[in-house]
Design a protein around this nucleic acid. Structure first.
Length: 296
DNA sequence: AAGGGAGCCTGGCGGC
DNA sequence: TGCCGCCAGGCTCCCT
């Protein structure tokens, strides 16, 4: 599920329910996910108040009092859902999350607030996600955070920055944009979509789009705009719902209906008058979808 | 030393 | 219907 827009959607869904609540108990239902849970994680979280939820790249950051931040990564298949314990036994309560496979409920936040109790449950069949303990005051130096590139929707992403980072790269654009050290938060879907919007071939070497006589080329500007827009639009749409992923409130993100190329192999290009079938190729072990006619 | 490929896991889907 | 191989939104490690 989760590239930046999906994680941001999760954050927005969880924040109102979790902020200000106290963690009665952090239940870890197995010893590890991708990594073993941090030593003392459950004990450290117990009794702490949740001050805020933020996000950096694809990391969901749960800030607790006492200089503690829980770093949550959703891997490929992680999701959160909220169970309001008061509403749980009420006739006519939502049942949209029943049928979710509880086998893979690995972490349960038991929370308490003025309005009652709730559980926030982390489910992750493939267990590529993880949950780690960090010091809030040291987050910027954390090995997972330290080397990340700029957020795609922030002011720090601009054509000059991209040009400087691309200058020495012989990598294809597709691979370069997946590098989290270059731009934080892009994944396979939105890289494919951004390259389509910018009219750039995923196979083109990154160093071929650099500054020309000190100024960004149109290609570079187009790519910058495409990345910013596709991410902003996806966040606005509540992310993309693939497989069985649902948001924390049970609703679906709908950006997947706006995919121009991703997962559309052999379907017709959406560019007006193009009619070319979308092609698929494998780069660095990942599927790339693109229009061979529109993307050069 | 940058870049490609395998590996980590489970589940769903298409093909036979 | 059943089994098998392939594929999946991420990321790290190892090898070249």
């Amino acid at each position: 599920m989760p590239e930046l827009p999906e994680v941001e959607t999760v954050r927005r869904g969880l924040s109102p329910a979790m902020t200000g609540k106290v963690i009665d108990r952090l239940e870890l239902r197995r010893p590890d996910l991708r990594f073993p849970f941090s030593e003392g994680l459950a004990d450290m979280a117990k009794g702490k108040r949740i001050d805020a939820l933020s996000r950096r790249s694809k990391y969901l950051l749960i800030h607790l009092d006492g200089d503690i931040t829980l770093i949550s990564h959703l891997g490929m298949s992680g999701s959160y859902r909220i169970i309001d314990e008061a509403a749980e036994n009420t006739p006519g309560a939502f049942h949209h999350q029943r049928g979710k496979d509880e086998t893979h409920d690995h972490v349960i936040f038991h929370l308490r607030g003025p309005e009652g109790r709730l559980r926030v449950i982390y489910n992750d069949p493939r267990r590529f996600g993880f949950l780690l303990l960090a010091q809030t005051s040291q987050l910027g130096e954390h090995p997972l955070i330290r080397d990340l590139g700029p957020e795609p929707v922030g002011n720090s992403l601009n054509a000059e920055y991209l040009a400087s980072r691309f200058a020495t790269k012989s990598q294809p654009l597709k691979s370069a944009l997946l590098d989290q050290k270059l731009i934080a938060g892009l994944g396979n879907i939105y890289v494919c979509e951004a390259l389509y919007r910018a009219g750039l071939s995923p196979k083109r070497q990154a160093r071929t789009i650099v500054l020309k006589s000190g100024k960004p080329t149109k290609r570079l500007e187009d790519l910058t705009v495409a990345i910013r827009q596709v991410i902003a639009e996806a966040i606005e749409a509540g992310g993309s719902s693939l497989k069985d992923h649902i948001q924390t409130d049970g609703s679906m993100g709908y950006f997947q209906h706006n995919f121009a190329v991703y997962d559309r192999e052999n379907e017709i290009c959406r560019t007006e008058g193009c009619h070319t079938p979308i092609a698929r190729l494998v780069q660095a072990g990942r599927s790339t979808f693109y229009c061979p006619r529109c993307q050069k």
